[in-house]
Each structure stands twice: as C-alpha cells, then as structure tokens.
Design a binder for these strands. Structure first.
Lengths: 217, 217
DNA sequence: GGGATATGACTCGCGGGTAAGTTACCACCG
DNA sequence: CGGTGGTAACTTACCCGCGAGTCATATCCC
C-alpha cells in the first residue's frame, strides 16, 4: 500500500518518435487548425488532439502558443516565398507570369490549402513581436514579387502612380486568395483544372484573346 | 452604522438614455471592435468600455455575445444589401455598374470601414445557428447581385460555365474587399478619390479605353 | 410604488501554461 | 552478457487568470 503516492500513468513514456519528426507533425496539425479557425479561436488542446499527442509536449517543443504559431508561419512562409521566387526567376512576364504564379500556388497549396490564411489573421494579438516580425518578413518577400509584376504591367499600360500600383497589388493578392478560397469550397478541382479555369477567366476579363504561349503547357 | 450591508453604487441608475438610442450606440461600438479584432478576440467588456456603459447592460439588451454580434450583422447587412440593390436597380450595366457599386460601397463605408469584415470572420464558432443564418441571408443577397453582374458580363464575352461564373464572382467580391482594406491603410483617401483610382485601375487592367459614360460623374 | 435604466461584485468554465512523474532507449561498465 | 545510470520522449493532474454570463441592488422619473 505504499504505492498510493505514485500515480499510474499507463500512456506515458517515449514512443520512439524523434523530436524533428514530431515537431513537423505538430506543425502540420497546427497549421490546419490555425488556418481554418484563426489564431484566437484555436486552443492548444485542439492542436494536441489533432496531432495525436498531449498538450505539454507542444509546450516542451515550442514554448508557447505564439511559438507554435511562429513555427507554422516559418514553414508556410518559406514554402510560399521560395516557390514564388522560383517562378519569378523564370522568363515568364506579364499575364503569363501571373498565371504561372497561380499555378504554382495551387500546386503548392493542394495538400494544405489553409497555409495562406495564416498571414491574414486579424485575431493575432497586437504587440506579439516575434509573430509580427515573421509575418512581415514573408509578406514583404511575397508582396515585393507581386509589386514588381504589377508595376511592370502598369508601366506597359502607361500608368505609374505608386499608390495605384500599391492598390492593384493588394487587389491582385486578394484575387489569388479568393481563388484559393473558392477552391476550398470545390474540392473536386485539381491544380490543373484550377489553372485552366483561371486562364479562361483572364480571357473573359481582358476581353481579348490571350497570347498563344499561355495555352501551351 | 447599519449601512455596512448596503454597497454604495454611485454610478448606477438611469441616465435618461432611451433603450433604442443606447442599443444603437452599443451596436456601433461593437461593430467597430468585432470588425477590427474578430469575434473570438473581442471581449464583451471591451465593447462595453468603448460604448461607455457597463457589461450587464449589454446582456440586458442583447442576451449574449452572439446576440450582440447578430445585431451588428443585421445592421451592417441591411445597409450594404440595400445600397447595392439600389444601385442594381439603376440603369448602369457591365463595368459602369461595377464602378458605381464600388462607389456606393466606399461612400457607405467611409464612416465605419470595419462593417465589411463582420461577414468574413473565421473565428465565429461553428454551430451558432442564428449567426450562420444571418450571415447567409445577407451574403446571399449580395452575392446574388454580384453573380448577376458577372454572369451578364461573361455572357457578353461568350462564356457561361456556371463554375466559372461562381469563381469570378468570388474574385470580384474579394477585389472589393481588398480595395476597402487598402483604403483602411490609406485613410487620407476620400470615397471620390478611391472611385477615381478604381476607374484608372480598370482602365489599366482592361487594357482599353473605357466607355465615356464612366468618366462623367 | 413601480417600471425602465443602470451597475458593482460575483460565479464558473475554458484555455494557456506548469510540475512532477513515467517509460523507452542507449551507452557504458563489470 | 546483465545491470545501471543518463537522457530524450511522453503524460496526468494540476494552477490560475480571463472572459462569458448572472444577481442583487441602486437611481431616476412618473
């Protein structure tokens, strides 16, 4: 009867999963929950349950809810920025570049479409310096690419008002966002069919035939 | 010294503000806070403080946080839907109608630009039936108008795929959203200057001169 | 007095965060 | 080869503050 002071903990103990693997698994689960519900509406216990582990393990590895979110931002931002920079380094310009960028985004986001949402979450508490810095870093990189494309397009059209460029860049990023959202509501679409649909929509909106380069894959 | 059982409550009692006035004042404050911080990140005490009254009065008038939010949705949705339906009843079509709609939105949102956000808040807990119904009602009305305009435009361009219409409607609404957001970051802009900017941007994106009717006010 | 307007001071659950302990594995010693 | 200590991987059970929601009361005016 001396054992009464020692609680039984049948599920405790290591399961042999290396820290790096477990961290990735947790970040994946957290990204999904944060991305679909928003930061404030997500509890760490939710993430733990979805990841199939317990809450303290998350705190052991990430320190805090903010630390976990920052890790999600880091992963998602790096993926997005690198893909878009890779496309920007290609030789596509103007609308072809826009379409190629959308294609890249769709392909990248197919397995986990919520990624995008992390960077536009209004429920992140202000004054969280680490989070704000991480978001700024990646949105700056992505916005710089979009801005460059928009500025080139406007220059060709004879317009160069900096505020106009800024507003149109914002609108363009939002279009990309909305198309991803629309895709979320139509899960039967593939990256290829989404890209084809965007090609048709460009055609309609621009009211003129597109360069033939766009129709070839 | 028998008064020790009776707490002093110097600020209690009526201030002579009729319920209807007070309710409107509270809804205004709540809309601002909900719209800028999101539902989950907003506390009822925040709203009370901003409205200059106490928390129990909110519960007395609106019953719950969800009831308060529903009242905000009701007010904002009615304003937006009625304004857009008023414009739709006019004789503008195609791009002119689009620009007139944006103009109406900008004018309507100038005093309280957060209104728009209430309808795209991912932090609203699922399973809140009253909120979901209220949002669905107004977004359906607004989406129906946008869908009608987009369908007409696509028909003229020889396209009529229903899913294409759906996706383009989503993109168009998102463009309106992003322009409002951009405006939030550039508070020196007026509704008129925003409308003029949109006209220029339409011109650039469409790559062709606009109908002269658009340039006249 | 009584109804409408109003509030200070509570309760209570939820969620961020922690303390302390448990189990598995491995390196090393004999 | 068996013990043995160290460490990494994990959990249960808890603390505690914050915020939703309530109660009892206070003030005003007719």
């Amino acid at each position: 009867m001396a054992r009464t002071t020692v609680a039984r903990r049948p599920n405790a103990g290591t399961k042999g999963v290396p820290r790096a693997d477990r961290e990735e698994q947790i970040v994946l689960a957290a990204t999904a929950v944060f991305g679909s519900q928003g930061f404030a509406a997500t509890s760490v216990a939710d993430v733990a349950e979805r990841a199939g582990i317990s809450k303290p393990l998350i705190y052991n590895y990430f320190g805090s809810k903010e630390g976990l979110f920052t890790a999600c931002l880091h992963r998602a931002g790096a993926m997005l920025a690198e893909e878009m920079e890779r496309i920007a380094r290609g030789d596509a310009v103007g609308l072809e570049r826009a379409l190629r960028t959308l294609e890249g985004i769709f392909t990248l986001l197919e397995p986990q479409p919520w990624i995008w949402r992390l960077f536009f979450d209004p429920t992140i508490p202000r004054g969280e310096e680490r989070i704000a810095a991480e978001i700024a870093h990646y949105t700056d990189r992505i916005t710089a690419l979009a801005d460059e494309g928009v500025r080139e397009m406007m220059r060709l059209a004879g317009a160069d008002d900096p505020l106009d460029v800024s507003a149109l860049t914002s609108a363009w990023l939002s279009v990309a966002d909305s198309l991803v959202s629309w895709w979320l509501d139509h899960p039967e679409e593939t990256p290829a069919s989404m890209t084809a649909r965007c090609l048709r929509l460009f055609h309609v909106v621009l009211g003129a035939p597109l360069p033939s380069a766009l129709t070839a894959d």
